[in-house]
């Protein structure tokens, strides 16, 4: 008899090892939990809250919650999907997410997770903040309009690239991504297009220049298959691929 430890997720036994979070164990078992600020390559951040699940009657953030026996996790009910959809709607109205005019559209994790919750409208009143673009870097452009402050670029630039190019400053509605240079411009930082931090953005905030709309509509990462099948934007990125992804090599997954 197996001594493997398990918890329940949507009625299925999910095995876990000591130190796993609910997210770790679920992803390993092939169960998709929607997430934005979490990238399984890096330690969890727990800031976007989109990976919220119901554990024994309480809402918990699955990317930071240590797995434990006796957990009964609801990851797919209409009730938990409603909560996630509301969180996403708040993210959409807080920024300026003009999908029809965005190079990342079709391969954007914010969009794909919203599709996953079947979000049809923004529900809330739009904030329409006035935000700018930093195109000072020769290879990379930054759109403040699209940044969801997930902190992935900040963490990866600091911990992996060892450059600390990015930092989130301010609090609440005044939170903002800043660049580590005297001028405050991205072009004056040490960021290189080869940096890991340049390819972890789940949305269209950090984009390579000269590659916009490279992948035609219909062939983009999330055009025909949902994120629960295709996986994250970052996981689909490889050195020879553009950040915008290429759906071709994943079509054999199903």
């Amino acid at each position: 008899m197996s001594t493997e430890k398990t918890f329940r997720l949507d009625g299925r036994d999910i095995p876990f090892i000591e130190g796993d979070t609910v997210m770790d164990a679920a992803l390993r078992a092939g169960e998709y939990i929607p997430h934005l600020c979490h990238n399984p390559e890096f330690p969890p951040h727990g800031s976007c809250r989109v990976c919220v699940v119901d554990v024994n009657g309480r809402h918990q953030c699955s990317c930071t919650l240590p797995a434990d026996e006796n957990m009964d996790v609801d990851n797919s009910s209409e009730a938990i999907t409603d909560v996630r959809r509301s969180l996403l709607q708040m993210l959409f109205v807080e920024g300026n997410h003009t999908c029809p005019g965005c190079e990342k559209s079709g391969a954007c994790q914010l969009q794909a997770v919203a599709y996953n919750t079947r979000m049809l409208n923004p529900h809330f009143t739009h904030f329409f903040p006035k935000r700018s673009i930093d195109a000072s870097h020769p290879e990379i452009v930054f759109y403040y309009n699209r940044c969801i402050l997930c902190g992935l670029c900040e963490r990866v630039s600091r911990d992996i690239d060892k450059k600390s190019v990015f930092a989130i400053t301010g609090r609440g509605i005044n939170s903002k991504l800043e660049f580590n240079s005297l001028s405050g411009k991205l072009g004056d930082t040490e960021l290189s297009a080869d940096d890991k931090a340049a390819s972890v953005c789940p949305v269209g905030a950090i984009l390579p220049k000269y590659k916009g709309f490279e992948v035609p509509i219909g062939e983009r990462l999330y055009d025909t298959k949902p994120i629960s099948v295709v996986g994250d934007v970052a996981a689909n990125h490889s050195a020879e691929d553009s950040v915008l992804g290429n759906a071709d090599e994943y079509s054999s997954d199903e």
Binding site: N96, T98, P100, G101, L120, N121, H126, F128, R131
Partner: peptide, 18 residues
């Protein structure tokens, strides 16, 4: 019924809100 991006969230014309 709100039909299309502009009716749903302002869409491209709402970029003038900047």
């Amino acid at each position: 019924v709100a039909v299309g991006a502009c009716a749903v969230n302002g869409g491209v014309p709402a970029m003038r809100n900047q």
